[in-house]
């Protein structure tokens, strides 16, 4: 698995926070800093199915790099979304298409959001991959 310095940073930050409420607070902070999404982009085709909350992801290609916007009504999930988008924003589609989000397991974010929300995070990652693949041509 290729090492990703950004993901390693996330793992170090998250794991330094001992208590899950502290981790949630950190995530909420990330979510608060996620720029608001243009409301007109909150469309059915940008909505991720399989999340307990409504999550939207928009992606476009600017100078060969992927730029993302996202939104979610719930604060903790919004924080997870912000974290994930920060890992992929500005990368090439080819890179994102084969990226492995190992930080989600290593921070136990995946299992903390399970079982019904495991599908949620999984669905976000799957959507990012699908978009990246479609932009690879």
């Amino acid at each position: 698995m290729p090492v990703d310095p950004l993901q390693n940073l996330v793992i170090r930050r998250m794991n330094a926070l001992g208590d899950w409420l502290d981790k949630y607070e950190y995530l909420i902070g990330l979510g608060d800093r996620l720029p608001p999404m243009d409301p007109s982009l909150r469309t059915e085709d940008r909505l991720i199915n399989g999340c307990q909350t409504q999550v939207w992801i928009d992606a476009r290609l600017v100078d060969g790099r992927m730029r993302f916007q996202g939104d979610c009504d719930a604060k903790i999930t919004r924080g997870v979304l912000a974290l994930i988008l920060s890992l992929v924003d500005g990368r090439t589609p080819a890179h994102v298409a084969k990226m492995e989000m190992y930080c989600l397991q290593e921070t136990r974010l995946m299992d903390s959001l399970s079982p019904s929300r495991l599908g949620g995070v999984g669905a976000m990652i799957q959507r990012l991959h699908e978009i990246a693949v479609s932009l690879c041509d």
Binding site: L21, T53, K75, L113
Partner: peptide
């Protein structure tokens, strides 16, 4: 001001099982 799923996630971390949705 709080989303029910967020509340459920926090309660779960505190050992409390409820249902949200």
């Amino acid at each position: 001001g709080a989303h029910h799923t967020d509340v459920g996630m926090v309660l779960d971390r505190l050992g409390i099982a409820v249902r949200t949705g």
